[in-house]
Amino acid sequence: MTPSWNLVADLRDLWSYPFMVNAFRAGTIVAVLAGAMGWFMVLRRQSFAGHTLAVVGFPGAAGATLLGVAATFGYFAFCVAAALVIAALPFGAGGHGQESAVTGTVQAFALACGFLFVALYKGFLSGMNTMLFGSFLGVTTTQVVVLLVIAAAALAVLTLIGRPLLFASIDPDVAAARGVPVRALSVVFLVLLGCAAAEASQITGTLLVFALLVMPAATAQALTANPRWSLPLTIVIGLAATWLGLGVSYYTSGPLGFYVTTFAFGGYAITRLAGLARFAGLTARGAA
């Protein structure tokens, strides 16, 4: 398969296969949800918790496959349960870099459990690759509907709590004095983050979830400190990385997780380098 470099013709070619259409639908839903949650996660300095939630999805999916249930349910069950556990830990809901070694310990144990489930389910090695590093093959229409319903519900809740959540993330003491339920919001946010991690895992794999959860938000926040711009920008960057990754992965038959991550990383690297260059330019001008 080689691209014709005619965008319309290439897209028509891509979408002539139902599995590619489903992959684009799923990727779009996931990029929007992961972008919005990731934007708050980066502001709240809870990236480590986010990564742990994603990694917990791996034993979830492997366990579900072992039991003969759809992997989607395994992802959601384990990620949301892990979110509740982290929220119940005394430091977990506090976030803000207070995440302790306990979270890391749980993460390592979750990976080990996933590997055990894979070993118990013999002859399953390509499946493990998909769970860890993502794939666009075999996204079913049912799966797309499940992703859409959960993403819509999670985004609705996020819209409802958006402004107080931002207040509680940046300034928890003052927010609490103003009657914002800081602790409850923190628990709700972790559950939403669990949903986002479970969804993103199904596109990028559990190990590369950060491609959609952290990189777009970090890039957008490096570009602008104005939340009215950086939140929409996060979603745009996530969508661009996903669509480009899917297209290139289709034409090269290369691994999807790698391409999505590479495009997201490329955007981040260019932004930071441009920022450094501008800073150096300002300094040089200031010195001259």
Partner: peptide, 8 residues
């Protein structure tokens, strides 16, 4: 307005 529910 940080304590108002919803988003701007």
């Amino acid at each position: 307005d940080g304590d108002r529910w919803g988003v701007p």
